[in-house]
Design a protein around this nucleic acid. Structure first.
Lengths: 374, 374
DNA sequence: CTGTTAGCGCGTTCAC
DNA sequence: GTGAACGCGCTAACAG
């Protein structure tokens, strides 16, 4: 029923091997032969059987991208940038297909997808967003990533900290660095590709953000932290607290509420924060979306932003500049990070020294924050 | 190096076939045997080889989702909803993997991805968003879709009109409807699965939106249409014009400007519209994102929204309610559409009668539109 | 219920 | 340069 390599070979009057060589272009073939083959391919509308070639070649052209929520522009921008690089320069291996996996932030689903991608013999995997801080999951994840890279899959962590366990081989284990330096020959060491980490400076960004509010005179600053038990939440919270500590401001636990990265959570968190301390003069939100919810909650209670309460977001998503007032936030280089992850996962860019790089976070001061009016 | 079925079989003291049966669960196996096999799988950390099983079974568990721009929440919500259904109820065939393909609105890339997905022997494909109106591309696309469904791939068009060519077999071709009614037996007719269409009522939504502005007293209504030559653009523009015509308002071509679905395009388009007619009292934008750009352009020129100029968007993306003023727009049931497309493409939902359904578009009146102040 | 036997379609040695 | 084999890892008939 469906056209195969053999059919094309018969049509072109050559062997299947020759057709394969023409199609993969990795072997010399006479120009005239190549022409006949290509014509036969056209005429028969032949389409390579991916699974079959993946089986024979022991590798596929699938690249997995794990995201917490594809409907969230944060991940959409990241995934889009990765994907653009995959289909961009069709370098070694040609066009790669992006497999976007929505984990919903669930560590279990994360592991499930990792297995699914390993099953597909994915060429690479990019994990984005925050990770669970639960030690058991961290261990399971590290094991899963180790299995993947052991199978030759390139792994890139994008926007999350390096894996604690087994991320990098101990430096000491490479006993004699120079004595038997491995030649450039073999593509990948059999032990598997080491994973690369692209982290955001969440801590620094959060610290500068809260520092900005403090500089404006704010002392009672509410914090809508992200979901509990996640690395990104921890990092941003640490930055927030560092800023408070640096100015000798009490870090009241009651001024911190956890919530998801959506508008409703921001709204609810703001209500709760106000209930706990009606004297708040500023709120830093988990991200821009939550910040909009915070603003809505404040307005609904008759408070003006920023006259009564300053509000800040995080990530600098596209709509933040158009909110009213425009959101003060922290810009993360999402597109750049995704593009770089895409190049790394296809082996088109060198790994940064040490296998990890931290991307800067830039404070964007806009209208939603102002000096505290006493 | 890597563990195979045979290894598991040996470890469990059974044949490879039995292991396969246990893993696929589609065949009776003794409980004790199954236990031994499962334990061996655990111990060996065995992971199925997807390509190999896809080759043997002549089908994969990949589902393609074509989107214009994954960084755009419109498509993110759609894709997320489709994906959620894929991994949801692990019905027949179990977990499916979503392959999200970013076409960037390019018809060529659309075709390329279709071929790539056919190469992977995808179980299904969901095409979202607008399509090119170019006849040549429409024909090429129809041919590509025909090849896909001919190969047994389920195809769902989501948010775009039915394919002109070959979408549905001519009703007349089924000569005798009752005489030899095909029994429910064979899963899919060999001729291939017919494609299903889920369309949005773009035309009706646009018509109601412009009608709303007219009811508010507006007569000089600028229109930031979407990219030229695309079905969605055409439908919305048709609705806009229908509303104008219904009220005997001149449809001045100079009051229509085409642009992309982003903020910058909206901004530029608004500037151009004002240049052409500085007396405009309202603007309908291609979508909410563009509408925000329009608002920004108006503000930059000292015009207030909605006091001087009313502005309306389209799609009702999440941030629209938080813009200032909140955007009047047309709500499209994106999540519902995506979920339904996901169920259709996995065969978990019956096709609607005629293979097509139109989803309603609801007018959302908010603060960005008001009565015209003379 | 379980083992045996054939391929699935292609890449990749080898020879020629 | 090209063709003839073989095997990748698994599923799907058949037997038993």
């Amino acid at each position: 029923m469906t056209v195969t390599l053999a059919d094309v070979a018969a049509r072109a009057g050559v062997s299947a091997a020759t057709v394969s060589r023409v199609l993969n272009g990795n072997y010399p073939v006479a120009a005239s032969t190549r022409g006949r083959v290509l014509r036969a391919v056209e005429e028969l509308e032949y389409v390579v059987n991916g699974p079959a070639s993946a089986l024979a070649a022991a590798s596929s052209d699938l690249v997995g991208i794990l995201v917490n929520d594809i409907a969230d522009p944060f991940f959409g921008i990241l995934a889009g940038a990765v994907q653009a690089e995959l289909s961009g320069a069709s370098g070694p291996g040609g066009e790669k297909l992006a497999v976007v996996c929505n984990t919903g932030g669930s560590p279990e689903r994360e592991l499930t997808y990792l297995t699914l991608l390993q099953r597909q013999r994915a060429a690479g995997v990019v994990l984005t967003g925050s990770a669970s801080e639960d030690p058991a999951h961290a261990r399971a994840l590290a094991a899963g990533l180790a299995r993947l890279s052991g199978a030759g899959t390139r792994v890139v962590l994008c926007g999350r900290p390096a894996q604690a366990a087994g991320a990098e081989p101990e430096p000491g284990s490479r006993a004699e660095p120079d004595s038997r330096a491995e030649p450039e020959s073999g593509a990948e060491p059999e032990c598997g590709a080491p994973l690369t980490t692209l982290a955001f400076d969440n801590r620094g960004g959060a610290q500068r953000l809260t520092g900005h509010l403090i500089a404006l005179g704010h002392r009672r600053i509410g914090c809508v932290a992200g979901p509990a038990g996640r690395t990104t939440t921890g990092e941003r919270l640490a930055g927030h607290r560092a800023a408070l500590a640096a100015h000798g401001i009490e870090d009241a636990p009651r001024r911190v509420v956890h919530g998801a990265y959506d508008r409703g959570s921001g709204y609810d968190a703001a209500v709760e924060l106000l209930r706990r301390d009606s004297e708040l003069t500023a709120v830093v939100a988990a991200n821009d979306t939550a910040a909009l919810g915070v603003c809505a909650a404040l307005r609904d209670r008759g408070l003006r932003v920023p006259e009564d309460v300053s509000v800040a977001g995080f990530d600098d998503l596209p709509f933040s500049a158009d909110a009213a007032p425009a959101l003060t936030t922290v810009r993360l280089p999402l597109a750049e990070a995704g593009a770089r992850a895409g190049r790394l996962v296809t082996g088109r860019e060198e790994r940064p020294p040490g296998g990890r790089a931290t991307l800067p976070a830039e404070l964007m001061v806009r209208g939603s924050t102002s000096v505290r009016y006493p």
